[in-house]
Design a protein around this nucleic acid. Structure first.
Length: 361
DNA sequence: GAGACGTGGGC
DNA sequence: TGCCCAAGTCT
């Protein structure tokens, strides 16, 4: 009953489905072109894959276009100002990706003559390129028969074989399964077909198994409730952290900003001054965190949910007529705030203090 | 292996 | 509303 390998007929079913139902995405080569041996630009594939890490296709599209417009080649990105890269990435989240993106571009441009390594091993040595991304670039941009295992493929494989082992322990077995399934011909399209299948048919909640090219041999479909796979380890609850943020406005309608440390949470991004968020104390007692002596007024609180904690931030505003000299930060006009490297949580805090700050016009 | 690391959308 | 989820990587 178990299918150790996909037969040629099964692979043909998947490719037939993909040729007909694939998603058209800006970084892709269409299946007809792919069949003629055309491969996507490695720079485009790499850029899209890094952006897509834990991020939806919908969110990535606009950022992908923007990055290609700003930096058409990997050499352009390597030559860019890191702060400009952070500004362009602002809002996409997981900011270590942006820092590693810039480092990776420098390595490729200056260490590899502007060409990406064409092997899985070489790719995995690059900053921000892990097991998945290395396999994906190798398959999609270099036609390598690498085993591409992402969240979509994990779902498809776990159901196809009704794998009972919980994630992430099951990844080793899954990778072996994928490795055996991947064909020598069109391995990049095979990977993208498996991911499209997971994204559009073999979905987490309500899979449309009737439309699946593998419906005749899916063990989860025949023996159980397919949506129970993959089995995952239990989640832990999120702690709540409290903090305060201070939005100072000078006589010229500028807000006082500063830069966060290069590493850690929101590393290298821009913020308004505030308390730290690890201590459980509120803004009333955090006199030390105020950037200036001023008549601070409370504007209420904002809540922002990070991956591993929930933040409740008390927001304060003060008008500072004679702007004190900037010490470690700078005064940024409200009109240009939207172009700064402000993470979403900081935009929320500023918008709480200055409701019109990010409104168009 | 487990925790750190963002954000927005769907139900 | 709150929880789950999205083409993971690094330490």
């Amino acid at each position: 009953m178990t299918c150790e390998t996909l037969t040629a007929d099964d692979a043909a079913l998947l490719f037939t489905w993909y040729d007909r139902h694939h998603r058209d995405l800006p970084w892709r080569v269409s299946p007809p072109m792919a069949r003629q041996g055309v491969v996507a630009d490695p720079y485009h594939v790499w850029l899209s894959e890094v952006m897509l890490q834990q991020t939806t296709v919908q969110a990535v599209k606009a950022y992908f276009d923007k990055f290609l417009r700003l930096w058409p080649t990997v050499e352009d990105l390597a030559a860019a100002d890191t702060d400009d890269v952070m500004k362009a990435w602002a809002g996409l989240g997981y900011y270590a990706r942006a820092r590693n993106l810039k480092k990776c571009a420098e390595v490729v441009a200056r260490g590899h003559g502007g060409r990406f390594p064409d092997t899985e091993e070489g790719l995995k040595a690059l900053p921000g390129v892990g097991a998945y991304t290395a396999a994906a670039i190798a398959a999609i941009a270099f036609n390598r028969r690498s085993a591409v295992l992402d969240g979509n493929v994990e779902r498809v494989i776990s159901r196809l074989y009704a794998i009972e082992t919980p994630l992430p322990a099951a990844k080793t077995e899954m990778r072996q399964r994928v490795s055996r399934l991947t064909p020598a011909d069109r391995p990049g399209d095979f990977a993208q077909a498996m991911m499209d299948l997971g994204a559009t048919i073999c979905t987490p909640k309500r899979p449309t198994c009737a439309l699946c090219p593998f419906r005749m041999k899916c063990m989860a479909l025949s023996s159980a409730v397919p949506e129970t796979f993959p089995i995952k380890a239990a989640k832990k609850e999120k702690p709540v952290r409290l903090g305060a943020a201070f939005v100072a406005i000078d006589g010229a309608d500028a807000v006082y900003l500063r830069k966060r440390p290069e590493t850690g949470l929101l590393g290298g991004m821009t913020e308004v001054p505030g308390t730290d968020w690890s201590a459980r104390r509120d803004g009333e007692t955090s006199v030390d965190a105020r950037p200036f002596v001023a008549p601070w007024e409370s504007c209420g609180t904002i809540t922002h949910v990070f991956t591993h904690f929930e933040l409740r931030l008390s927001v304060y505003r003060a008008n500072v007529a004679d702007a004190p000299p900037a010490v470690g930060g700078w005064w940024e006009p409200i009109a240009s705030l939207k172009r700064q490297a402000l993470p979403t949580v900081m935009k929320k805090a500023i918008a709480k203090a200055i409701p019109h700050a990010f409104k168009p016009g």
